[in-house]
Amino acid sequence: MIKTLTRIPVANYSNLKARAGYSIKMDDKEIALFKISNGNVYALENRSPHPKGGVLSEGLVSGEFVYCPVFDWKISLIDGKVQAPDDGQVTTFQVEIHEDIVFIVL
């Protein structure tokens, strides 16, 4: 099976501020983009898996984690896993960076 990968340019790397979250709307998806202190960039679905939801882009970023701003769940930016004692997983998206352009691979 041939799988088409779509690479969507979403931001200029140098414009992203560390430890800030950006919300990006693409078609029907809303994605939260984070640049962390070590310079890595991560993209997740912009919604906490808590039953009452909540966006992630406004959460506090610490190392490789973001805290859901509404119910304080701690979520890994790397694999989207919610940390104990809570449970769940957020969809993550692959990020590629070429010549200062940040792409999200769908």
Partner: peptide
């Protein structure tokens, strides 16, 4: 404004590989 209040809207399908 850019850091906290903007929601970036992007049309998908801009580049395919």
């Amino acid at each position: 404004q850019d850091k906290y209040y903007v929601k970036h809207t992007i049309m998908a399908g801009s580049e395919t590989k």
